[in-house]
Every structure is written in C-alpha cells, then in structure tokens.
Design a protein around this nucleic acid. Structure first.
Lengths: 243, 243
DNA sequence: GTTGCGCTTTGACCCAGATCAAAATGCGTG
DNA sequence: CACGCATTTTGATCTGGGTCAAAGCGCAAC
C-alpha cells in the first residue's frame, strides 16, 4: 500500500503549464492530503449510495462506473484509465458503482480538504472543468454508439476508442499495426455497449474471421490495418470523433 | 431582437450566493459583452464544425444538440432548456449540430471576452464546473436509457425527465396531477431515445390507451398519476435518478 | 495428469422494434 | 371551405440481436 510519490506523476490535476507562482504551494498542499489505495481486478471500489469521503485520480489500471437496474440490467457509464478523475467535489454519496476492471491503483485525496484547496487554487477547478468537459464529449460520443450503431459498429467503435486511449498513454503511435491490451471481459464490453455478451463474442469472432482484428492470447488485440477497423465504426473517415 | 436585460435573470452563471465582493464587477463585465439571438422552431443555430465565436445561455425555448452519421442516422446528445449553457470556452468549432426545437432565445457572450472574464472571476468557472458535472450525470442517466431500457421504459423515462425539469423551472409542484408542454416532435423524441418515430408513436398510444398519460391537443401532456408513470420507467421507486 | 471453475464460443430459436406502406389528423392559406 | 403539406397513427412484415442451451477452452490447484 506504499508507493513512490512520483507514481502520481500522471495526476492530471497538477498538469498546468501556466502560473508557476502558486504551483509549488498547490503541489505541497495536495501532497499533504493524498494517499494511495489499490484494488485487485474485479474488486468493488465503492457502491452507488455509499458515503464517498475522497476524490481520486487513477494511477494504474482500469476502473468502471456503472448503473444497475434492480432486475440486473447493467449499463457501464464511465471507463476510467490512468490520469482519469474519480468522484465529485461537493457530493457526499457515490452516484455509481465503481469496480476495478483490472488491478487498480488510485491516488486519493480526502474530499473536504480537497474542496478547501480547490477554493484557494483556481487552477485545480479550471483543470477539473477541462477534464469534465472532455468526459462529457466522450459521453456524448458514447450516446451515439448506444443509440444508433449496430452491434458490429459498436464493437469496432470500442476497439478504436481503446486503441486510441492506450496509444495516447504510451505514446507509441502505430506504424506497422496498432496493438493493445484489452482489459475488459466480454461481459464488461457488453455492459459498455448495451449488448449481451453472446453478441459481443459473435461480433468479435466475425471481425477476427475477417482479419480486421487479431487476438493473441485472450488479452492482446492486434489491429493490422487501423483504417479497415475505422471503416467498420460507421463514423466519418476523417477524425469526426471527439477526444 | 431587443430584450429587456432582466430577461436574462435566468442566466445561471450569475447565480452565486457567495462573495458579493466581485459580484457587481462580474455582472457589469458580462453585461458589456452580451447580446441576444432568437430562432424560430426548427431553425438551425449552428452546425457541427462551424466556427463558434460565442457561448450562450438559453433564456426561453428549447434547443437540441445532436450528432449525425453520414447515412442519416441521428442521435440527440443534449437537450437544452432555459438556464442551460451552450458552447465550450476554449473551443473554436462547434462539435454538435444545434437546432432550435421550439422558438428559442439565447443570451450570448462573445467567446474571447468571456474567456478573459472567466480567468478574472473564478465564480464563473466554478459555476460552469457545477453545471457541467450535472450535465455529465444527466448524460450517464441517458446512457442507461439508451443502452438497457425497452421502448416503453424509454418513453416513460423521457416523460418523467421533461415533467421534472419543467416543474423545477415553473416551481409548480404536482398536487393533482402533473402536466407540461411537450416541446418535441415524435421524430425528436425518437432521436433522443434511439428509436424510430413509429415506435415512439406506438408506445405513446399505448400509454395513452392505458390512461398513464393524457394528451390535450398535441402539445400538452397530463400525467394523472406520476407514480404510475414512474413505475413504467424501470427505475427504482425511490429517487434513484440523478438530477 | 485430471479435476474444477470461470470465461468464451457456437448453435437454435424467438421477439421487440425496425422497415415499408397507407391512411388519418391537423392546420395554415388562398 | 377545400386544398396542400407536414405530422402522426396504424397496419403488415421482416430481422438483428436477445434468449436459452450446450459445448469448448484455458489455467490454477491438487
């Protein structure tokens, strides 16, 4: 449960180019209230309705936010990768179920002190606004996927989103085919896309059969021709996608 | 095209209880760069990709944000009622198609000056963060609707959302049955819910037939028993919904 | 090795909602 | 009032993805 503080180098609320003036104070103050928590794949981080006395930033691993209906239907509504922010300043209770999709490390800040620091350091609020607006754009892209795309387009869209996000993290751009770790089970993919796991499996098999994606082991996805995958998403050829 | 400045009393970025200190300046400065624009029902406000040199707040009427695929499939991704905010500080181009769903009046601020004022008045940024987080919660609720609900549940959910939002605007709480203006065509409802307009029509007819909603004219919706409608949404009986 | 268990794949069938088509309902206009 | 046009309703049929069921496929533990 102990980590090198530099692990939190990804912490996005610190990434500010401007105003070196208060930068030092800010880091210092945030450092004073931060602590790390780790979760194993599959473990719950918090349940909807629980008291949530911290906010956090993902250091490593993947977490999901999801909403469940009482009959068991589940929809994932957020997928948090390293540098993503979890929690809402000013809110007492968690609004969603948060689960560690893979092994997960969070850099947490106790909520009350964090809110106080936010008032003193406009930067943090500004940065948080940026991030929230980006998340909102991503949510809206996701709404198009859920509402209007076919199962095949949904799968292709998810794969391009994951490929892009992992690529931007590990700034290895694709030259001879992109590849990335698929951290999601079939069921998690289904919950992301509003499908059943059987349909996800069938469409993955179809894409594999057609050579649009290759699977290595069960986790590694290889995309020999990214444009060919893009063509299956239903989006414009150019970068019509947000984020 | 001229409006009484107090029309903008709904302008949400001014609603701040705290800090009377800079309140005066803020209002003054914002007033200096604001102007009004009106649109008739059906008119486009801006197309995705267009240069957007303003941000705005809805004064009266309803606007929609939507995304279209090149084959014509359309998904609404935002529905703006009075007091909602339109546009993104720091972004040059519009990301979505914005259409006036009903007659619409916007209180606009030129983007560049607005961004400058934002830097000077942390309030505005804080308020905008609040609003954006609320919108994100709404978007996530919407994702559950799109991904997991049946057509009937989708319709019921939309009606409760509209009833609630209109009620909160015109603080007339329901005593003997709620009622509200339905500003959306069947097609707009379909685009909101990821359905076809035929399915929307059929489900509306079914709810009408069963007495769960009454229609007066073509715009007025009466809900004799709000709980009965709620029971059709698939959500928990208690206020499990956000916003 | 083999047993057990969770995850994934594949198959057979079904149904909610899409699609295609036509009629009905408004409603502004000459 | 009758015409034209957009919107909505209703009907008939089709189909993509859901549902139910049964194998496969690792892989960790013994």
């Amino acid at each position: 449960m102990t980590f090198d503080p530099k692990d939190c180098g990804t912490c996005p609320i610190r990434h500010r180019a401007v105003c070196a003036r208060c930068e030092a104070d800010e880091l210092e103050t945030l450092d004073g209230i931060k602590f790390y928590r780790s979760f194993e794949a599959g473990q719950p981080v918090i349940w909807s309705g629980d008291n949530m006395d911290f906010v956090a930033s993902v250091v490593t691993g993947v977490a999901s936010l999801s909403q469940a209906m009482e009959d068991g239907r589940t929809q994932m509504v957020g997928l948090l990768l390293p540098s993503d922010f979890l929690g809402r300043p000013g809110r007492e209770a968690a609004t969603y179920d948060v689960v560690a999709v893979s092994n997960l490390t969070l850099c947490c800040f106790r909520r009350k002190p964090f809110e106080k620091i936010m008032l003193q350091t406009p930067h943090i609020g500004q940065r948080l606004l940026e991030m929230t607006l980006d998340e909102l754009d991503a949510a809206r892209e996701w709404m198009l996927i859920l509402g209007r795309k076919t199962a095949r387009e949904k799968i292709a869209s998810l794969l391009t989103i994951l490929a892009r996000r992992e690529a931007s993290l590990a700034l290895q751009t694709a030259e001879s085919g992109t590849s990335f770790e698929l951290p999601l089970t079939r069921e998690a993919m289904a919950d992301y896309l509003g499908l059943t796991l059987e349909t996800v499996s069938r469409q993955m098999s179809a894409l594999k059969r057609e050579g649009i994606v290759l699977l290595e082991g069960k986790r590694k996805v290889i995309i020999p021709d990214f444009d060919a995958l893009m063509a299956e998403t239903g989006d414009d050829a150019d970068g019509g996608m947000v984020s």
